[in-house]
């Protein structure tokens, strides 16, 4: 169970998160939607403890991650994984070393066993035989899938995906959606997926939450969101150029 309670975050003078609260139940797939630059990636980094909020609490399994020691935080991070927007693969390591990073660093498994786990993770994202390549030799979509494989390699209980289907072809996008679904169904993985791909959101979500102006303004199942009468949500999910979101921007200018 992840509870986010009333968090605020500023960068310099711009307020990005303004009293955001959100609960994610165990085994749930929560999709967070919102416009580019509204702070979705920032929110995910708060959940991983990479960024600290100005105020508010993030509680994972009853523990406030701002209050626990760095050792405990790392223990918690071993059960979680995050797939970064651009992949964030380590340039200086091969694909195999990237995917098996945590295992090579911390586990007592033999090199052979780790290689086996790496191969298994890569085959989950339909990649094989690329362990020896460097990230610079991969296409954007492949990087994204390798990043997912790196997250899967530690068998995490919680996975955070930052725009997993942005910038990949529709067929790969669908297989990523399917993967997220099957992790949810078979392994009861808790997933938080940030996206603005509405098709993917409807396919994978147990609950969809919309982030707008630093707060969650609406939350519900895919059907509930589709039947919304909130004008902001309506404009976003239907991708309309005219509506309250763009009007407030015009006012700002």
């Amino acid at each position: 169970m992840i509870e986010i309670k009333n968090i605020y975050k500023n960068f310099n003078s711009s307020k990005i998160l303004k009293g955001l609260s959100l609960n994610i139940a165990d085994g749930e797939t929560k999709v967070i939607i919102g416009r580019s630059g509204c702070g979705k990636s920032v929110l995910l980094k708060h959940i991983m403890g990479v960024l600290r909020p100005e105020s508010g609490e993030i509680i994972i399994d009853g523990k406030d991650i701002a209050k626990i020691s760095s050792k405990e935080l790392n223990k918690l991070r071993m059960r979680m994984a995050m797939v970064f927007q651009g992949g964030a693969l380590f340039d200086s390591l091969t694909v195999g070393e990237n995917v098996g990073f945590t295992l090579y660093e911390y586990s007592k498994l033999s090199a052979r066993e780790i290689e086996h786990r790496v191969e298994e993770s890569l085959s989950n994202v339909e990649l094989c035989g690329i362990q020896k390549l460097l990230p610079s030799e991969l296409s954007g979509g492949m990087k994204k899938r390798v990043a997912i494989a790196r997250a899967l390699c530690v068998n995490p209980e919680i996975i955070l995906y930052d725009e997993p289907t942005t910038g990949v072809d529709p067929i790969t996008a669908d297989s990523i959606n399917e993967l997220i679904r099957s992790l949810h169904d078979k392994l009861k993985v808790t997933s938080i997926v940030v996206t603005h791909d509405m098709k993917s959101a409807y396919r994978i979500a147990d609950k969809i939450a919309m982030l707008y102006h630093g707060k969650i303004i609406a939350e519900g199942s895919a059907e509930e969101i589709q039947r919304t009468n909130h004008p902001v949500v309506y404009q976003f999910i239907n991708g309309l150029a005219q509506g309250p979101i763009t009007e407030t921007i015009d006012k700002c200018i």
């Binding site: 990479v50 223990k75 991070r77 979680m80 970064f84 964030a88 693969l89 380590f90 990073f101 790196r150």
Partner: peptide, 9 residues
């Protein structure tokens, strides 16, 4: 990548 390092403990 530095954020990623942290998330990988």
């Amino acid at each position: 990548q530095i954020d990623a390092l942290e998330t990988l403990a």
